[in-house]
Write a protein that binds this DNA or RNA. Structure first.
Length: 831
RNA sequence: GCCGGGAUGGCGAAACGGGUAGACGCAAGGGACUUAAAAUCCCUCGGGGCGCAGGCCCCGUGUCGGUUCGAGUCCGACUCCCGGCACCA
């Protein structure tokens, strides 16, 4: 019997699944089958799947099929993140409309997904570029605007002066435009922002309530949100009459007695007034102008920039010491963070120290290590909390107590208050692009900014746009689109011609799957209630920050709007590792890309799926090793051969198992039921498909040996068939076509996809005899097979009967023995 | 610099509440079948040593130290690799 015909088998079952809608689910609650939502991150329709997709979706499919067999009604949908820059680039390069390019890609990739046999409910498919979808983007945008969560502000963008267009960060290559090579400039544009900072506190706090997320992702998000707790301190500036007190933010108010100067960001609004009329005025103006030319869009350009600054000519009063301290402007202070002004403590902060040394400003350490034996090397500064010194009445206080007391003192006097700062900034969602959701706003000369009335949604993306890659937002030049009557006054007005960041599309798409065809609302809240929160979300670590913060933010906004009842969208998150080839990421330039289609053609979908799961645990990177793929293929062939002897014969008859089975029958049955236990446990608790598959391989090895020894009596056949059927059922989530086919040929009428997961018989799985290891002084010296529950004394007797153990005990007295029932006996003898 | 993760055979990896290190697979070597090859099946497979042999002994989970009857697993110090944040006050 040769190899199984995977091509025919896979086509056959894909046809059946499609015709029978095997994986479609409705939203009806079912008391016997609780809901389970298994979701994989939706792909960008680039045109073809890569191995990363295959791994991602194979993991998700294994979970979905497993949970379904376990009795859950599983929602397992798929869709397309189909707006975005590549479609526009393709349009420019190949003169094909982005919509056609995108839809063509979608149909190709959908075909590829179907060839891999994924159990999706295709009736729920969505695509972001379709008006039925993106109208709800617009609807959410309007709702956020109503709630004050969408607003306009200026922000710097990358600008190519030659193409006269905004460049995305990835279109800036080494500081020049990717198309024409012109050095990139910066330009300030008024854009739309979403107020994610309004949720910064909650986004941070809830990270500790996500035990189903890896520490890694939670830490990445924590860094990104960047919460720090401190105080705001007001310093009066008597040098400049009428000037508001200077506000600085610090997390180390315990060091305030060491604040020997202040530094403002060059963009700080007070800089000009402080310098006005002083001898420093010209120097300050010059410095600020020079700093203004810095390319701040490219943050890396700022990294490594030497510290630089200039005295403003004015002084402030440190309210705690009444000391007069000089106010400087410095390039290392960021206007975007805190108040754009700092108190400098050169005695206890490395940056301030460096600056003070540079300009010969006074340095006064005010915190020393609490442990007197800790030496601070000369020329270095001690930056950790410790004990205060040079701090008046606070000398000797520990940092944390001093912070509390100083804040309390400052609060009472009115020059300090507690303050929490976040690094996260509001989310700029405007894109000067064509292929995205039009922002539903209208600019009217008379009325200002007017939202498009809800009834007028969707604002359709016009088709007749000529894309050149040059000259501002493409929609500006779409005549049918840009000019529009003002909804409020009816006068001539102009539509917003920017489109939305595509992360907007993917921030709520998984809610739409619950009710994908709704044309009156983004979804029916009841439908969302039926499925949410998402039980298992699977996707690449690349989305650990942006997508996974944005979608949490959306969920919280939607909750506050009364649309959903969950605080967090995702219960369990799995970030699968990358698929490598020969140790490095697959890329065209390296020439090491493995095409999924080629692999499916050669080995079949089931083999590819099996390998993707077997090669490594899911969260780790794996190498696509073709010899490993062959190994998986061989394994399936082996199962096929083993099963083929039984093809056409009736399903196993449990009653044929003898009441007193032979030893080998008993051993096989034990292995069968132990394997069920092991695989179920691996999938249920850990998603460790690699060890689950290993366990099935072990069972196959035993079945194979059993078969070799002969399967003739009805009892032997029954035991063998039980093992065989178990193998097929346990492999189903990984190799669905193969197992359906074998299952059918083994005479089962019901489809495997509708079968419940096998139940282990604990009595059969139970091992009556156990191997107790015998150690002498912690070293393995022997093993004894005894009945479960054998007491220590009996085990000891048996152990002494072991010549090897006895040899190590000869002439010595056992001073102590450690006994772990059914596991181990360790005899301690003096050296 | 701060934070997170990791390091186990020739390779991918197992060992899940300290208790037989290396399951399972790949590669490699040997054998059976075959005119031959492929496929398949069987055996060996961390390192070193002793023994004619059944077998036995020592070492071994990045490094050093500790706790323990017993450590890949726990604790302390360190090295290297991967990732995140980074002039964030």
């Amino acid at each position: 019997m040769g190899a199984f015909d995977f091509q025919r088998i896979e086509e056959k079952w894909q046809r059946i699944w499609e015709a029978e809608k095997t994986f479609a689910v409705d939203n009806q609650p079912d008391p016997e089958h609780p809901g389970y939502y298994c979701l994989e991150m939706l792909p960008y329709p680039s045109g073809r799947l890569h191995m990363g997709h295959v791994r991602n979706y194979t993991i998700g499919d294994a979970v979905a099929r497993f949970k379904s067999a376990r009795g859950f009604k599983v929602l397992h949908p798929m869709g397309w993140d189909s707006f975005g820059l590549p479609a526009e680039n393709a349009a420019i390069k190949r003169k094909i409309h982005p919509r056609l390019w995108t839809e063509d890609n979608i149909s190709q990739m959908r075909q590829q997904l179907k060839r891999l046999g994924y159990a999706y409910d295709w009736d729920r498919e969505i695509a972001a570029h379709r008006p039925e979808y993106y109208r709800w983007n617009q609807w959410f945008f309007l709702k956020m605007h109503e709630r004050g969560l969408a607003y306009r502000a200026h922000r710097w963008v990358n600008w190519c002066p030659t193409c006269e267009t905004v460049l995305a960060n990835e279109q800036v290559e080494g500081g020049v435009c990717w198309r024409c090579g012109t050095p990139v400039a910066r330009k300030s544009l008024e854009q739309w922002f979403l107020k994610i900072t309004a949720y910064a506190e909650e986004l941070d706090a809830f990270l500790s309530k996500l035990p189903g997320w890896s520490e890694r992702v939670r830490q990445m998000q924590r860094n990104w949100i960047g919460k720090s707790t401190g105080a705001l301190v007001k310093l009066s500036v008597p040098d400049v009459p009428g000037l508001e007190p200077l506000e600085i933010f610090t997390t180390r108010i315990d060091t305030i007695f060491g604040a020997t100067f202040c530094v403002l960001a060059p963009e700080h609004p007070a800089v000009e007034k402080l310098a006005a009329g002083t001898i420093q005025e010209a120097a300050v103006t010059d410095f600020v102008a020079r700093m203004g030319k810095r390319n701040v869009v490219h943050q890396d350009a700022l990294l490594g920039e030497a510290k630089e600054g200039v005295f403003t000519g004015a002084h402030a009063i440190n309210p705690f010491t009444r000391e007069r301290i000089p106010i400087w402007v410095g390039n290392f202070v960021l206007m975007e963070y805190g108040t754009g002004a700092i108190m400098a403590v050169p005695g206890n902060d490395v940056r301030d120290h460096e600056f003070a040394r540079l300009y010969d400003l006074p340095i006064r350490p005010v915190v020393r290590p609490a442990d007197p034996s800790t030496e601070v090397p000369s020329g270095q500064v001690y930056t950790e909390p410790g004990l205060l010194m040079n701090s008046g009445a606070y000398d000797g206080w520990p940092s944390d107590k001093a912070q509390e007391a100083l804040i309390a003192q400052g609060e009472e006097k009115g020059f300090t208050r507690r303050m929490v700062q976040f690094r996260i900034r509001d989310w700029g969602v405007s894109r000067q692009r064509y292929w995205g959701t039009p922002i539903p706003m209208i600019h009217c000369a008379a009325c200002g900014i007017v939202p498009v009335p809800e009834a007028d949604l969707p604002v359709l993306l016009p088709e007749d746009v000529h894309l050149t890659g040059e000259g501002g937002s493409p929609l500006v030049s779409a005549p049918s689109f840009a000019s529009v009557p003002c909804p409020r006054c009816g006068g001539d007005a102009r539509r917003e011609t920017d489109t939305m960041d595509t992360f907007f599309d993917s921030s709520w798409y998984f809610y739409r799957y619950a009710d994908p065809k709704n044309d009156r609302a983004p979804f029916d809240p009841a439908a969302v209630d039926r499925w949410f929160p998402i039980d298992q979300y699977i996707g690449g670590i690349t989305h650990a920050i942006l997508h996974l913060i944005y979608c949490r933010f959306f969920t919280k906004v939607m909750r506050d709007m009364g649309l959903v009842r969950v605080d967090e969208p995702v219960v369990r998150l799995l970030n699968q590792g990358m698929v490598l080839k020969d140790g490095s990421a697959m890329s065209k330039s390296r020439g090491n890309v493995v095409e999924p289609d080629a692999m499916v053609n050669r080995y079949g979908a089931d083999t590819c799926r099996l390998f993707a799961l077997f090669a490594a645990p899911p969260e780790r990177d794996m190498d696509w090793n073709e010899q490993g793929v062959e190994g998986c293929h061989r394994f399936l062939e082996r199962v096929w051969r083993l099963a083929s002897a039984q093809f056409g014969s009736p399903p196993p008859d449990g009653s044929a198992v003898k009441a007193a089975p032979s030893a080998r029958e008993e051993a096989l049955r034990r292995k069968t039921h132990q394997t069920i236990l092991k695989v179920t446990e691996d999938l249920e608790r850990r998603l460790h498909f690699n060890t689950a598959i290993s366990a099935v391989m072990e069972l196959v090895n035993e079945l194979s040996a059993f078969h070799l020894e002969g399967v003739t009596t009805s009892s032997e056949i029954a035991c063998f068939r039980e093992g065989l059927d178990t193998v097929v059922r346990l492999l189903n989530p990984f190799a669905p076509h193969f197992t359906e086919e074998v299952w059918e040929r083994l005479g089962h009428a019901q489809r495997l996809a509708h079968h419940a997961w096998p139940e282990p018989d604990l009595k059969v799985a139970d091992e009556p005899l156990v191997e107790v290891i015998v150690q002498v002084n912690g070293k393995l010296r022997g093993k004894v097979r005894v009945e479960k529950g054998t007491p220590e004394s009996d085990v000891l007797d048996r152990a002494r009967g072991d010549s090897k153990v006895e040899a190590h005990l000869r002439g010595k007295t056992v001073s102590r023995s450690i006994f772990v029932p059914d596991r181990l006996l360790n005899l301690v003898v003096p050296g």
